[in-house]
Design a protein around this nucleic acid. Structure first.
Length: 575
DNA sequence: GCCGTTTTCGGCCCGACTGTTTTCAGTCG
């Protein structure tokens, strides 16, 4: 189901985790983690590569290349199986809890026999951790808080995970004889940031061949319900997938119904009732006679209710019905509108691909311009220096315009320190074409301090974009506590753009914050924050999030022609 | 386990923060 590279990345990461828990050499653990990332971000399908080609991937040597070859030849890796046999899978789940790492997980397993998150919570409640070396009251509190955070996602998965599953299901069902149409609907079609279950809609005269194919897919773990119109399964990863099959004639009504949201559907059904109609997943009917009026396309359904077609990301009952009635629906920004990417990394810092490879991949995407924004020296782990970044700039200048005409901007991702300062003095900062500034630490400052910190960053004449502004990681870290309205005011006043970071575990700003920011006249940048070539495609999630925030192309600075962008960057009012 | 204008061994991303400690281990970015 997943890309072969993703499978290998997951396998190597699992091996690294298990090695860490079982007390393996820390450098060896890191080697596997690094190789996992490199393979996940590698542009070629690793299942098609031989040992020699695999060893050409940075971070992959003989041992790991052999394991990858073994994996594709036999379906498993002996060394991984051996360590799996000694450590239950549930122990690895423990380290997904924030503040709980491999060492503590090992103690919990070895001393208390804990092999799952549930058992850990029980053990804390039964006070069985008391007296355990290294576990005090704060540790217990932090673990319980971490578990709550994990569960807050409520079994929901990230957008990219759900989309991979949906794409795989659709590819298989589309190939079944008799399948006339097959798409995903539900919250996935609306681009919600997390997905509870994947809704697939198909059209066919006879549903049984589709249902049979669906039930027998390789990743189905359990069939929850199996009927003529609807089948529900749970995948091996625990994600529920529902398949609905309708006659082609009912396509539009069914798609409208199964796309939701529920709140939006309530509104449309009430509108139908008020017009003497009845709206269901089978069509719009005359309430009196029961006669079918329309059902074939979503456009017809909306038009019969006196509405233009409403883009799915808007269907949340957040004013879209009223805007539609007034004829004021926004012309939403699309992926095709994006001319550039303004936040990306290379292997000079924590990316896994070279400058040249990233530039070629960006050119392949058909972008007009592309900014390289590696980390600055205030994040010591990145080992950035003036010399390194200036050497990179020279190389960027050489490459500028030479790869399919792609124009290059030399930038940096600055670190916003606890008091709002950033790396490098102003004269050095002015040497960059573009500067993103982001929070990477001190996430727990109080609201007033955090607000001052971000406002100060905006007021810095050399900060062009606030990167992942709330620093949240979905399911793992809450957004920082900050008065966003105050920050948006500062952004609007200083001409600082807000990033919509497209990484599926960030999506930061999130949709509701975008809706608010827009009211303050803030400008936005939809960026990939790519650390590898395939990440450049992640902007689809950033665009979906921007659409949920009602943004048009005019609101997004990287839809502008380069000239206009450069003017924007050069004319920060505080500069 | 990987890697090499310090090259086949001996380094390896390094500093800050937190909580449990009484000098430091674990986690995180």
């Amino acid at each position: 189901m997943a890309r072969p590279n993703d499978e290998v990345e997951e396998l190597l990461q699992e091996y690294a985790d298990l090695l860490a828990i079982t007390g393996g050499d820390a450098f060896k653990v890191r080697s596997y983690e690094k190789a996992a990332r490199a393979i996940g971000g590698y542009h070629e399908d690793v299942s098609t590569l031989d040992g020699k080609a695999l060893r050409a991937i940075p971070g992959v040597g003989k041992s790991i290349a052999d394991k990858i070859v073994e994996y594709f030849a036999t379906g498993s890796v002996q060394a991984v199986e051996e360590v799996r046999a000694t450590m239950p899978a549930g122990v690895r789940e423990l380290i997904a809890i924030p503040t709980l790492g491999p060492k503590k997980a090992a103690v919990l397993h070895d001393d208390l026999g804990i092999t799952s998150v549930d058992q850990l919570v029980e053990a804390i409640e039964a006070e069985r951790l008391r007296g355990l070396k290294g576990f005090g009251p704060r540790t217990e509190e932090n673990i319980l808080h971490g578990v709550r955070l994990l569960r807050q996602a409520g079994g929901r998965v990230l957008l990219n995970v759900a989309l991979d599953v949906a794409d795989a299901v659709i590819a298989e069902l589309t190939a079944v004889t008799g399948c006339e149409r097959c798409v995903y609907a539900g919250s996935l079609r609306r681009f919600r940031e997390t997905i509870g279950d994947v809704d697939i809609l198909a059209a066919a005269k006879d549903s049984e061949p589709l249902m049979r194919a669906f039930r027998s897919m390789s990743f189905v773990d359990e069939v929850i319900a199996a009927g003529e119109k609807k089948t529900s399964v749970r995948t091996t990863k625990g994600l529920q997938v529902d398949l609905r099959v309708v006659p082609l004639d009912a396509w539009g009504a069914a798609l409208q119904y199964f796309t939701g949201s529920q709140a939006h559907n309530v509104r449309t059904r009430v509108m139908a009732v008020q017009a003497g109609l009845k709206l269901s997943e089978y069509g719009i009917f005359d309430a009196e006679t029961g006669a079918l009026i329309v059902s074939k396309t979503e456009e017809e359904v909306y038009h019969r209710l006196g509405l233009p077609w409403i883009p799915p990301p808007l269907r949340e009952d957040r004013g879209e019905i009223e805007a539609a009635l007034r004829g004021e629906l926004p012309e939403l920004v699309t992926e095709a509108d994006l001319r550039g990417d303004l936040h990306t990394h290379t292997d000079l810092t924590d990316g896994v691909a070279s400058l040249e490879d990233m530039v070629h991949a960006a050119a392949q995407r058909g972008l007009d311009y592309y900014a390289i924004t590696d980390h600055a020296p205030d994040m010591p782990m990145q080992r950035m220096s003036d010399e390194k970044v200036l050497a990179q700039r020279r190389r960027v200048r050489e490459l500028d315009g030479t790869v399919h005409g792609l124009r290059l901007l030399h930038g940096t991702e600055l670190n916003i320190g606890p008091d709002g300062d950033v790396d490098w003095p102003e004269d050095f900062l002015r040497g960059f074409d573009i500067r993103v500034a982001s929070i990477h630490s001190h996430f727990t400052q109080d609201r007033a301090t955090m607000t001052r910190r971000l406002v100060r960053a905006c007021e810095n004449p050399c900060v062009d974009i606030l990167g992942h502004p709330t620093a949240r990681l979905i399911g793992r870290r809450l957004p920082v506590d900050v008065d966003l309205a105050e920050v948006f005011r500062a952004c609007a006043r200083t001409g600082t753009a807000m990033e919509i970071n497209s990484a599926p575990d960030r999506l930061d700003l999130r949709d509701e914050d975008i809706l608010l920011a827009r009211r303050y006249g803030v400008m936005f940048a939809i960026n990939s924050d790519a650390h590898a070539e395939p990440h450049l495609d992640l902007v689809r999630y950033g665009v979906g999030t921007a659409q949920r925030g009602w943004l048009t192309a005019a609101d997004v600075i990287n839809t502008w022609p380069l000239r206009r962008l450069r003017t924007f960057l050069a004319h920060k009012p505080t500069r």
